[in-house]
């Protein structure tokens, strides 16, 4: 859940320190977020909104005590891309879908290993 709260925070602030701590280097989704945020930083843009509400959480343990597969339904608030002056240059409407997250518990810490967001059609 914290991970999903962190997602809009990273886009809004460009602060990636916590995101990097929480994610596995092999996580493709996690890395793509870092790339996009770096691009935003480069051109001075920010993303606003996009808060995520999660529900219907289910969890499996493919590898008990080590690998967890957490699935939840999410509602994502609209997002706006802002330029350096704060003007809106792109808007994304609210959306819903499911997120499959593979989380690993290793050496006393949680790490996100993989994320599969699937938008509801």
């Amino acid at each position: 859940m914290y991970f999903q709260r962190l997602y809009p925070y990273v886009y809004a602030t460009g602060d990636i320190s916590e995101w990097k701590t929480l994610t596995d280097p092999d996580c493709i989704f996690c890395h793509s977020v870092l790339s996009e945020v770096a691009q935003l930083e480069q051109v001075g843009q920010r993303m606003r909104g996009g808060l995520i509400t999660a529900s219907d959480v289910t969890a499996l343990e493919p590898d008990p005590g080590h690998v967890f597969h957490v699935t939840f339904h999410v509602e994502v608030e609209p997002t706006e891309l802002l330029d350096t002056t704060g003007a809106v240059i792109q808007s994304n409407p609210a959306s819903v879908g499911t997120i499959d997250t593979i989380v690993i518990w290793e050496d006393g810490t949680w790490v996100v290993r993989g994320v599969t967001p699937t938008q509801a059609s």
Binding site: M47, G50, G114, Q119
Partner: peptide, 14 residues
């Protein structure tokens, strides 16, 4: 950059 997580590259959780 889109910020709409559906367009991020994704892992294959399955």
């Amino acid at each position: 950059p889109t910020g709409a997580m559906w367009s991020n590259l994704k892992d294959n959780a399955a």
